[in-house]
Nucleic acid binder design. Structure first.
Lengths: 147, 147
DNA sequence: CTCCGTATTGAAATCCATTTTCAATTATAC
DNA sequence: GTATAATTGAAAATGGATTTCAATACGGAG
């Protein structure tokens, strides 16, 4: 039942003092299985297939929990719903996202550490983190008819 | 009355077929005068000082208009309100934003064009645009007591 | 300068994502 | 098993953003 969760998710959650309940497992599994960034509503829809009584609120709470544990990324999307993806697929927060299907691909991001230090030197800011997002159309969606 | 607007904003808006009304001027002026990225609510608050009858709806509509004309950037911020800044201050969408005061600084962003082409080659995506955001604390806010 | 047609406005209503509240439920330690 | 504290889901509340529509004001024609 838990074996199809990503490496150590179960332990991490338990160690952090959280219970591994059925609703949570449903949400976890959905995220684990998707390489595509999902809206909250989509996570809810999919997770319901595993646990029909699942409430939307629990989806929000579980996503928040996963976010705090660093297991998922939240993509600061456009107006109308944030997107979530497994963090272990994209450890550095450098993503290429398809505007049509939300497929997310990790970008090999050379030189950003260096650039960060350079920027700190120039501006006096204390940089705490970064987000690099490229967006466009993935190969599959380029073949489709929509623009 | 219009002279303190950034270069050509007035003409651009007129040429695009829009009227330069008092409510719009109020909103324009607020954005023109701020180097800091502003929430919609903050724009509303400040613009009211110039034109008290100004409705929040008009702020949204005007920001949208400016966004379409490319005169402002919308920063895909965290949950709870998007931020807007003059686009001419940050032509490439590479920003360093203070988490405390929302001051936005343009990042000299070398090598990103190259990286984009490289990524397109590797992934087959058609890249349409990008967003690079560093966040941290500006020098002034580092001195403050809050974290 | 005045009049007119039309774009624009603001208030209210609505929409939709997210959060809060709280009684009922359920996972885990004993 | 039982106790107990975390967790859940429904409903209500919140808050950002959008839609609707009658009233208003811009800016060209006269």
């Amino acid at each position: 039942m838990l074996e199809d969760l990503p490496e150590g998710w179960a332990q991490l959650i338990r160690r952090a003092g959280y219970r591994l309940t059925r609703p949570r497992q449903a949400v976890l599994r959905v995220l684990a299985e998707s390489e595509v960034a999902l809206t909250v509503a989509e996570v809810h829809r999919r997770a319901r297939a595993r646990y029909p009584r699942l409430g939307l609120v629990t989806v929000y709470r579980t996503l928040d929990l996963l976010l705090n544990l660093g297991l998922v990324h939240r993509l600061p999307g456009e107006v109308g719903g944030q997107l979530y993806v497994r963090a272990d697929l994209h450890p550095h927060g450098h993503l290429l996202i398809c505007r049509s299907c939300h497929r997310a691909v990790e970008i090999p991001c050379t030189g950003l550490e260096e650039m960060t230090h350079e920027v700190e030197r120039q501006t006096g800011f204390a940089v705490q983190g970064h987000w690099l997002e490229l967006f466009g159309l993935c190969p599959a969606c380029q073949e489709g008819t929509d623009g």
